[in-house]
Computed example of a mutant assay.
Amino acid sequence: MAKLLYSATMSLDGFIAGPGGDMSWLTDYLGPNPTMEAATEEIGALLIGNRTFRGDDPLKGTENEGEPFGGGWSGPQFVLTHHVPATPVPGITFVTDLASGVAASKEAAGGSYVNVLGADVAQQCLAAGELDEILVCVAPVLLGDGVRLFTHPGGATTRLERLGLTSASQETNIRLRVVR
């Protein structure tokens, strides 16, 4: 059965996007990263939050704009949203609740990982007991404000077990398992 993996590049102060969802900061850190490239090969489907799907793209204006992992991955994509567009989007399946999104993306992934993209949907998966692993690529930058990797004021402590720690040209990669 597929596992859910939340992956993101994060600033040292804990933000995955700048104020207003700005992703332009990330372009300086989109270099070779063997850990992320290996993880991408393990992905069978994506479960994407609506704000991430409709949000800023660090590859805006390039030939890889709108392509998952800069064009380094293709496969089934499921977007969790309360507002399904009237016009279908090629290659995208819209789901309206977490349970059906998780079920559909796991089925599509087969024995591979479902990669969760978006802080809010990752938090929902964690709260529902569905999130299995987290891969954080820590970039050497302080954003000061924006969208946090996780945020749950007053939330419960979640234990994590380190599975791996590697370095790329500019980032430090931490892979963790959610301890249940």
Rank of each mutant, 00 (worst) to 15 (best):
E37W: 03
Q77V: 13
G70Q: 06
D56L: 03
L160P: 06
A86Y: 00
F94Y: 07
E41V: 03
L142S: 07
E37Q: 14
T87N: 11
V84T: 00
T93L: 03
K106S: 05
E133W: 06
D56S: 14
G71C: 04
P68C: 07
G70E: 03
L126Y: 03
P88N: 02
A39I: 11
E42A: 10
G146L: 12
D97T: 04
P58Q: 14
V89Y: 07
P85W: 04
D57F: 15
T40M: 06
G72L: 15
A156W: 01
G111S: 12
S112L: 11
G91A: 07
P88T: 02
A119V: 05
E65T: 07
A156L: 13
R148N: 03
V147P: 02
G70C: 07
A122H: 09
N64V: 14
E41L: 12
T158Q: 12
Q124E: 06
L160E: 04
Y113R: 14
T40I: 11
R54M: 13
G75R: 09
F53H: 13
R159I: 01
I92M: 02
A39M: 15
F94V: 01
T151I: 13
G144N: 08
T157R: 14
V147M: 06
P88A: 04
G118L: 11
K60R: 14
G144Y: 07
G66D: 04
C125L: 14
P140M: 12
P90D: 13
E67F: 05
P85N: 04
S112Y: 00
R148C: 02
H83K: 14
G71H: 06
T151Q: 15
T81D: 04
Q77L: 05
L149S: 04
A156M: 09
E37I: 10
E107I: 09
D97S: 08
H82D: 03
H152D: 15
G110E: 06
A156G: 08
A109N: 10
H83Q: 14
L135A: 14
Y113E: 04
T40P: 00
G66C: 09
H152I: 01
F53T: 08
V136F: 12
P68D: 03
R159E: 10
L135K: 01
L46V: 09
A86T: 00
A119I: 07
K106R: 15
H82N: 10
L142H: 10
G91P: 01
D97V: 06
E37V: 11
F94D: 00
H83S: 14
V114F: 05
N50C: 08
